[in-house]
């Protein structure tokens, strides 16, 4: 199927401990607003974390600054022979599961959607999903 990303990444995403920590740190810094960013990879392996600007209003939405996204997708990442492998955002006050909004606005089916929950401020956690044609499937992250 043309929508599948790099082999293996569909069912298990190798989010490294320091990338996990970077996303949680970003989420905490941005709270009570949602944070957002992307992870770029090469040959299916995540290699770069790019925190991005959330241009959405209020505390319950995110939209990655389209200018930053365009620069990454069309300029920086092709130059580096890399591609977007994951998109992350935070749910500052709710569980790490795709909301209806997340599903409706999932325009990047090839990417893994990582959601960081700060619902319990002392126990932040991240889960990963693919969202394709309205279907949510969980992607295994390293323990």
């Amino acid at each position: 199927m043309s929508e599948s990303a790099a082999p293996g990444i569909d069912t298990a995403f190798p989010l490294s401990p320091e990338m996990r920590a970077a996303i949680i740190a970003h989420a905490r810094r941005e709270a009570p607003r949602e944070c957002c960013g992307i992870i770029a990879g090469r040959d299916g392996a995540p290699v770069r974390v790019y925190p991005t600007t959330n241009i959405a209003e209020g505390n319950r939405f995110y939209e990655i600054d389209p200018k930053e996204l365009a620069d990454l997708e069309f300029r920086e990442l092709p130059n580096e022979n890399a591609e977007i492998v994951a998109i992350y955002h935070s749910h500052p006050a709710s569980p790490a599961y795709p909301s209806r909004t997340d599903v409706e606005l999932a325009f990047w089916p090839e990417a893994v959607y990582l959601i960081c929950s700060l619902e319990d401020p002392d126990k932040p956690y991240i889960r990963g999903f693919t969202i394709r044609d309205g279907q949510i499937a969980e992607v295994t992250l390293p323990a």
Partner: peptide, 15 residues
């Protein structure tokens, strides 16, 4: 000219 098309990366915890 270069014309770039970029779908949003968006969503949120609402609803």
């Amino acid at each position: 000219d270069e014309l770039g098309i970029i779908p949003a990366m968006a969503g949120g915890s609402a609803a």
